[in-house]
Amino acid sequence: MKAQPQPLQPGDFYYTPEGYMVFTEQYHRRRGTCCGSGCRHCPWRKKKPDGRP
């Protein structure tokens, strides 16, 4: 089952200095699943053995 996009709420994203929109962990948790795109704030992304994302 594919996760459905969620309506944006305050705190769901921010813009980088380059103008890219970045979703926060808050948005990803509400969405409910990982999309597999390697998102910066994905709460399901596996960490490397040394503890780095």
Rank of each mutant, 00 (worst) to 15 (best):
V22P: 03
K48W: 03
Y27T: 13
P53Q: 04
F23C: 14
L8Q: 14
Y27M: 14
D12M: 08
G51H: 01
P43C: 03
G19Q: 07
G11T: 10
W44I: 00
D12W: 07
W44P: 00
Q6P: 10
T33K: 11
R45V: 08
A3K: 10
T16F: 02
Y14F: 15
M1I: 13
S37C: 11
D12I: 09
A3L: 11
D12C: 06
D50E: 07
R52L: 10
P5R: 11
P5F: 11
G38I: 04
Q4F: 09
F13M: 14
C35A: 05
Y27N: 14
E18Q: 15
F13A: 15
C39I: 13
T33L: 09
W44T: 02
Q26P: 02
C35P: 02
P53W: 07
P49F: 01
E25H: 05
M21C: 06
A3N: 09
K46Y: 00
G32L: 02
T24C: 01
K2W: 08
H28D: 09
D12H: 10
R40Y: 06
P17I: 05
K48A: 12
S37P: 00
Y20G: 05
G32Y: 01
R31Q: 14
K2D: 07
G36P: 00
K2Y: 07
G11A: 12
P17K: 11
Q6L: 15
F23W: 15
Y27G: 13
W44F: 03
A3Q: 13
Y20Q: 14
Q9R: 10
L8F: 14
R31Y: 08
F23V: 14
Q6Y: 04
C42R: 01
Y14G: 07
R40E: 12
G36M: 03
S37Y: 12
T16I: 02
C39L: 11
C39S: 12
Y27W: 13
